[in-house]
Design a protein around this nucleic acid. Structure first.
Length: 294
DNA sequence: AACCCGTACAACCGCCTATTG
DNA sequence: ACAATAGGCGGTTGTACGGGT
């Protein structure tokens, strides 16, 4: 309130714009390993040339394990329309009623689709959507006060489905490829996969995971690179220099066929997360598979 | 093929609130 | 009580992409 405020971070030398797959992997790996205690210090700790806010946004809106991607269902759209009628542009509150959807995503869908649809419906005097019970709307949104820190993913009980009838609360299946990805990664790591969020403190250290693998090295940096290489491979990302270094380090031949093929795939502008959904079997690689491939 | 235009959505910005010392 | 800081929110912008001409 008029108070002078320091910038959230030193912007000089920081990267802006789209996130590269390598940055995504670094962020995921860091949060998997350490959680996100302090967003401000996270970029340095994770070795990212990004502002803490940018990291937070990327995680919350895109990389979080419980993000539900893909088109909005009719029911979801109806919920948004109804909630917007009562709450206005309180995107985070609306998001709290739609598990797996982010405020940013809802804001976008409203601005690009639903706003027009509602305007058109008002013109033609037709309802923009089917009726929805008020109880479901109010009950799922009244608790979400600003700054509570409770994200949709963490709310295990406030899950509303627009077509719910008597009790209003049903669980929307967490069926999205990001969940599959995270579950695959988590299960590969013997960590407990969760449908409604991951307890990061339970995730084992990468080095621990590699102990039984031929990839394991006593050199921490080598292990870190191999860890990133593993994640990149799991995510089907273009292999970064870290990954290639790990490969070369392991096979001892930079010009080996596989290393060369991986290098040819490097494309810093593409992103795994913009690709179409894939089958769960895609994530069936094991450490054995990787070590064989390497 | 080149250009234009609309759409979708990721990302940034600035402000506000909650928390902490 | 106050100030500093971090986290969160909503508005806006930038840009990639697809379809039409």
């Amino acid at each position: 309130m008029g108070r002078a405020r320091a910038p959230c971070c030193e912007k000089v030398g920081l990267k802006k714009g789209s996130w590269s797959p390598a940055e995504d992997v670094r962020l995921i790996a860091h949060i998997q390993k350490h959680g996100h205690g302090n967003w401000r210090t996270l970029p340095q700790l994770a070795g990212l040339l990004r502002c803490g806010k940018s990291c937070r946004l990327r995680w919350i809106n895109y990389l979080r394990p419980d993000i539900k991607r893909g088109n909005f269902t009719k029911e979801e759209e109806n919920v948004i329309i109804h909630l917007h009628q009562t709450l206005g542009n309180k995107w985070s509150k609306i998001a709290s009623c739609l598990p797996g959807r982010t405020d940013n995503e809802i804001k976008n869908i409203w601005n690009t689709h639903l706003k027009k649809r509602v305007a058109l419906a008002e013109k033609t005097k037709e309802p923009p959507c089917s009726p929805i019970s008020n109880s479901s709307v109010s009950s799922c949104c009244q608790s979400g006060s600003r700054g509570s820190g409770v994200r949709p993913a963490e709310e295990e009980t406030s899950r509303v489905h627009p077509e719910s009838s008597a009790d209003d609360f049903v669980v929307i299946p967490a069926e999205d490829n990001m969940m599959e990805m995270w579950n695959a990664i988590s299960s590969s790591m013997s960590a407990q996969s969760t449908a409604n969020g991951i307890d990061l403190s339970m995730v084992p250290e990468p080095c621990d995971l590699f102990e039984d693998s031929p990839l394991f090295s006593t050199d921490k940096e080598v292990n870190d690179n191999r860890w990133i290489a593993y994640l990149e491979r799991e995510l089907d990302l273009p292999q970064t220099s870290a990954a290639l270094a790990a490969v070369e380090d392991y096979i001892g031949d930079p010009d080996a066929e596989k290393g060369g093929a991986m290098a040819a795939e490097i494309d810093p502008t593409s992103s795994f997360f913009s690709k179409r959904p894939r089958s769960p079997s895609h994530f069936s690689l094991s450490f054995t598979d990787i070590s064989m491939a390497m």
